[in-house]
């Protein structure tokens, strides 16, 4: 088997595992982490597509540049999504702490 096949199978496996976690894990932060893993696995798959769409010029292998460009854009989007999600988790926690009684421990380190 060629390397890209292994990478493809690996990506598929991680997509499956992280998708499972995103759906079943009730913990918001873990959902966000699983979503990140899911995104990364999709990007690995894009890398595989870049390799398959590539070729050779004068014996030097090259990859299809379009999926790489998509990965870079996708990374930015995934980063923005993570920041927004983590900010929301934090604000949710703060808001819940504000309404709780003070005898329950509720500390957030900013």
């Amino acid at each position: 088997m060629v390397a890209s096949t292994w990478f493809g199978l690996g990506a598929a496996l991680i997509i499956g595992l992280s998708l499972f976690q995103v759906i079943i894990n009730p913990e918001p932060l873990r959902k966000v982490l699983a979503f990140n893993l899911l995104g990364s696995a999709v990007f690995v798959l894009f890398g595989v597509l870049a390799r398959r769409g590539g070729g050779r010029i004068d014996g030097v292998a090259f990859a299809d540049p379009v999926p790489q460009a998509l990965i870079i854009t996708g990374l930015v989007v995934a980063f923005a999504a993570t920041v927004l999600a983590v900010a929301l988790v934090l604000r949710l926690l703060q808001a819940e702490c504000a309404t709780q009684d003070h005898d329950t421990e509720c500390r957030i380190d900013d």
Binding site: P28, L38, G39, V42, L45, L84, L92
Partner: peptide
């Protein structure tokens, strides 16, 4: 800025993110 709207926003975001990652795939 109410607690329940943060919860609603987070749930909305997670559904939307899952949707877009499936679309991207």
């Amino acid at each position: 800025g109410k607690a329940e709207t943060f919860a609603a926003a987070l749930r909305y975001l997670l559904f939307a993110l899952l949707g877009s990652v499936l679309y991207l795939l």
